[in-house]
Every structure is written in structure tokens, then in C-alpha cells.
């Protein structure tokens, strides 16, 4: 496997080059900041939660390919989900990234996230992939 196969798969670069749900929410119900002290990458996350459902999510980030792609995929997957469902997605993703060794298979609707599994071969970058998710986790818990 090469670097391109592991890290820079098409899905990842597509999300990096065209991040989904980019921007801010003026009437957000939750906003959280995340920082990766390793590289200084910063992330601002905005959520609009109504009746226990994530009805809007926006991210403002300046980060590397992995960080940006991971945040973009995350935003698509939690949009419209209930808080419990969103937490479940976070758990699935973190579990995948933190399970050492063999690849983890995710439920079909989360399949796209498997593209980030190659990052596990580069331990320093795992933090880049996790930053948006940890920020979201923090945001949901602050609710």
C-alpha cells in the first residue's frame, strides 16, 4: 500500500477539496472550539439542535487534509440525527480509529468513514482525524 492508497484516497481528497457544511451558524445552539496542539490546527463547530435533533451543523476549520476530510464526512453523517444517534456515530468512528490491528467494518450507512482507516498506519495523524469528532463530542455533552 502506498501513501496515496492509505491516506489520500479519493473520498478523503474529495472531502478535503470540497468540504461539506463549511461555515458558521449565526443562531447556533452550541458552538465549540477544538485545537490540535501538535500542529495548531483549529476548528470551530456550530450546531443547531432542536427537539433533540441536530438540524444544522457547520464547521469552520483550517487544517490538514485528514482533519478537514474527517470533519466534512462527520458533518454529513450527523446532520438530521437525534442526539443519541449522533453519539452512536461518534462511538463507532472512535472505536474504528482506536482499534489497533485489523480493519473494522462499519454499518453500511457509515461505510464512507472506512476510508479514514488508512490513517491508523500513521499514528501521529490519528489525532488529526479525531479532532472534529472530539469537538463534536464535547459540544453535544455541553448541551
Amino acid at each position: 500500500m502506498s501513501l496515496v492508497d492509505d491516506l489520500y484516497r479519493e473520498t478523503i481528497l474529495d472531502h478535503y477539496h470540497n468540504p461539506r457544511n463549511r461555515g458558521t451558524i449565526s443562531d447556533a445552539t452550541v458552538s465549540t472550539e477544538g485545537v490540535n496542539p501538535l500542529c495548531g490546527d483549529e476548528l470551530r463547530l456550530f450546531l443547531k439542535i432542536e427537539n433533540g435533533v441536530v438540524c444544522d451543523i457547520k464547521l469552520e476549520s483550517r487544517g490538514c487534509s485528514i482533519n478537514t476530510a474527517s470533519g466534512s464526512m462527520m458533518s454529513e453523517l450527523v446532520l438530521g440525527k437525534s442526539l443519541e444517534e449522533a453519539q452512536a456515530v461518534i462511538s463507532e468512528f472512535k472505536n474504528m480509529m482506536l482499534t489497533k490491528g485489523e480493519d473494522v467494518t462499519l454499518p453500511e450507512e457509515l461505510e464512507e468513514l472506512e476510508a479514514l482507516q488508512g490513517v491508523k498506519k500513521y499514528p501521529v495523524r490519528i489525532k488529526c482525524a479525531l479532532l472534529p469528532w472530539n469537538t463534536l463530542d464535547e459540544g453535544l455533552k455541553s448541551k
Binding site: 502506498s2 501513501l3 491516506l7 489520500y8 500542529c39 487544517g63 490538514c64 487534509s65 485528514i66 500513521y122 495523524r125 488529526c128
Partner: peptide, 11 residues
Amino acid sequence: HPHDMGQILNE
């Protein structure tokens, strides 16, 4: 991003 640069040069 410089991180990606560092990773690519490490190869």
C-alpha cells in the same frame, strides 16, 4: 498543508 508535506517526504 505542512503535515501532508511532512508525511509525503517521509516516504
